[in-house]
Simulated scan of single mutants.
Amino acid sequence: MLLQSVWFFLWGLLWAVFFMTDGFDMGIGSLYPLLGKSERDKHMMIHAMGPMWDGNEVWLITAGGVTFAAFPLVYAVMFSSLYSALMLILFALILRGVSFEFRNKVESAAWKKVWDTCIFLGSFLPALLFGVAFGNIFQGIPFDGDGVYQGTLLTLLNPYGLLAGVLFVCLFVMHGALWLAIRTDGDLAERAARLAGKLWPVLTGVAVVFLVATFIFTSLYDNYLATPVLFLVPLVAVAGLVGIRYFLMQQAFFKAWFSSAATIVACTFFGVIGLFPSLFPSSIDTAFSLTAFNASSSPLTLQIMLIVVVLFIPVVLAYQIWAYKLFSGKVTDDDLAHEETY
């Protein structure tokens, strides 16, 4: 049971790191029509994402890979139940990736407008749909004892699932606005910082509504009520929200972004801890739910995977920290002259 519990934690950690890193990319893309007033602004926003955006998505692949290798039954039922939503996310992410390259291949306003729209949709839709997917997981998915999903795509678009989607969008848009305030300068940076200040009460309000709705529609609070010390996790999220506001007022944008990152990680773990030991609960009958204990791979498989993770994850982290440090400066006009920057 210890190995299954460790891998459950690692599964949640990988999703949290993905949301923390790729969240600001999706946030910037979602803000693209709002803050991209000129061609220079759009170039600045794209370059602020690059060259980290594709590296950030490695964590998505890793999270999916861990689900497949450590909890294969969960992978099978999850990807069949959420197939439509996950395919939409995949196509949107592919569309966003090619849009960065294609928009500058033809000097045409109409051409660029098409790919600018794709950048927005390829960022906004994944942010929304990831929230919808996890919101539905939190409240339970209608699948039977054979793992067959008893619903449609519209079944997932229920009020609580959509609320979770809105929360994810708000978190990522805030994260993206703060990243723009850090990585850009001039009018764009000032507008991004002002927008972050306006977004804060919206994000806070949505978070409060989500916490109340979670108490009504899910059983996530059961683990917290059984072990009150776990309430430290949502308290970290609250502290992160307060930190965003405080550091915005001080114009300490990196500290505000770090507070935003802490909020995203804590929000993710709020759901993961509330789920434990369930990974994919059934709303039809709890007996059908898939947990860390009834859906895991063999102990030998989990042991071998743990050795690999211990050896290689620090290498990946070290590389990504180095990359972030290397490209930590503000985007300049010289950077805009080189297309390969993104």
Rank of each mutant, 00 (worst) to 15 (best):
C267H: 04
K112M: 14
I313H: 02
A323I: 06
G23I: 07
F143Y: 15
G12L: 03
V6T: 05
K37R: 12
L95H: 10
V238G: 05
V58E: 05
V66K: 05
V212R: 00
A192W: 03
H175I: 02
D222Q: 15
Y246C: 01
T214W: 06
S278R: 11
M305G: 13
L225I: 11
A207Q: 01
R40E: 01
S259H: 08
D334R: 14
V229E: 14
L225K: 08
A193D: 00
F120W: 13
I119A: 12
A239M: 07
A16Y: 03
S289L: 13
L88F: 14
A76Q: 15
I94E: 10
V114A: 07
A207V: 06
G197L: 02
M78E: 14
S297D: 00
L60A: 11
S296E: 04
T227S: 06
D334V: 08
A110I: 08
T117Y: 12
F258P: 00
D222Y: 11
K113W: 06
T268G: 09
M249S: 11
V308P: 01
P234K: 05
L156Q: 05
V316T: 13
W257L: 06
V265P: 06
R191T: 05
V6C: 03
A109T: 15
Q250S: 10
Y83V: 05
M20V: 12
L60F: 10
F71V: 08
F138L: 10
F130T: 07
D144H: 09
I28P: 04
K112I: 03
P201K: 11
L13S: 13
G27P: 04
A164H: 00
T341G: 00
G65N: 07
E339Y: 13
Q303T: 15
K42R: 11
T214P: 00
G131N: 03
I313W: 05
D116E: 14
E340H: 13
N294A: 09
A266W: 03
N223E: 04
F288N: 15
H338V: 13
M49R: 04
S328N: 14
G176K: 00
D54F: 10
G29K: 08
F168Y: 05
T184A: 10
S297H: 02
S289N: 12
A70L: 12
V238L: 15
Q4K: 02
L220Y: 01
V315T: 13
